[in-house]
């Protein structure tokens, strides 16, 4: 899928942006029905435009629904697919991000997220970490993405990841080192656990991670999570925005479909990074060298066993 490679010249200061109006589209897609979902997207993009949003974000697999199983090839889109073209075109005058099943020319299928700006496709993120455990079976359905990259927009430099990608801190680390000021996590997270107190639900777990990342990496973290039910799974919504430093800047309601808009103050990023400049001293060279050493030692340990993976004693 062709993407426009933007030059990394525009910074937040360069855009002179003071605040940004965000639209979080908590959609309940119709499972496996791309035309119906396209209509829902177009409607919400127009609603966002009506509410002067500069950026309208949809959840993971918003164009297809989540529990696709054998439906994956039936709902896959390519860059020339009419539904894809129409949705990219709908971004004229604003930015939109949406989730879809991507089919490549050689018929691999990815769980992908497209970012479009002013009628053009700017970036596609292919989900790298495909959960394949418990109720998840994405490793059976999709090829894994091979890139994690930030991208420039007229609003600022951003990163996009999909659900499980967030649970690998390396994803966030790479996006942060690549200069992302705002990181979008598009999700289809089903409710798991509804206890209060110690044995909390996964909603609390998500909140903790987003909060921690926005503190540690000093950037905006945006979660856009879907709602609705699929085969008994309940997607909890609760999309939210964390300001740099971990403050909850906006929280959409749980379970409720709709477009929820909020205003974020871009200048908060600078203020936080001035008061907490840990970001600037990150030792990328050291990190790389140590990771390479670990990789080398793993390979040597395997070779030392004559290339035979040994049995390890479990606990």
């Amino acid at each position: 899928m062709p993407t426009r490679t933007a030059k990394r010249t525009r910074t937040q200061e360069g855009t002179g942006l003071r605040s940004l109006r965000l639209g979080l589209a908590q959609l309940a897609p119709r499972l496996g029905d791309v035309p119906a979902n396209l209509d829902a997207h177009l409607e919400l993009v127009e609603a966002g435009r009506g509410q002067r949003a500069s950026l309208v974000l949809f959840p993971e697999l918003s164009m297809s629904g989540y529990q696709l199983r054998d439906l994956v090839p039936d709902v896959a889109l390519q860059g020339r697919s009419p539904e894809f073209v129409r949705l990219v075109a709908a971004s004229r005058g604003l930015c939109i991000g949406f989730g879809f099943v991507e089919e490549t020319a050689d018929h691999r299928f990815y769980n992908s997220y497209a970012f479009c700006e002013d009628g053009r496709l700017v970036h596609v993120h292919r989900k790298v970490y495909l959960p394949t455990y418990g109720l998840f079976e994405e490793g059976r359905l999709y090829a894994a993405g091979e890139h994690i990259r930030a991208f420039d927009t007229h609003l600022g430099r951003m990163g996009a990841m999909l659900c499980e990608d967030l649970w690998h801190p390396s994803t966030m680390y790479i996006l942060s080192q690549d200069g992302a000021q705002l990181v979008i996590t598009a999700s289809a997270s089903p409710l798991r656990g509804a206890d209060v107190g110690e044995e909390h639900s996964n909603i609390d777990v998500w909140e903790t991670a987003l909060k921690m990342y926005s503190q540690l990496f000093g950037c905006f973290m945006v979660l856009v999570n879907r709602v609705g039910f699929e085969d008994g799974l309940s997607f909890w919504g609760g999309s939210r925005v964390m300001a740099p430093g971990g403050r909850i800047s906006f929280e959409a309601p749980l379970l409720q479909p709709g477009l929820f808009t909020c205003e974020i103050d871009w200048r908060e990023l600078r203020r936080y990074r001035v008061s907490d400049p840990t970001h600037r001293s990150e030792r990328l060279d050291l990190t790389l060298a140590e990771l390479q050493r670990i990789q080398r030692e793993r390979a040597e340990s395997y070779a030392g066993r004559g290339g035979v993976a040994g049995l390890e004693d479990g606990a």
Binding site: A28, A194, D195, S201
Partner: peptide
Amino acid sequence: QRAIDTQLLRRVLVAFIRDE
């Protein structure tokens, strides 16, 4: 000592019935 979030569960299960 654990307790379920009855308010959240009620909303989820009511919405589940309606939706399905």
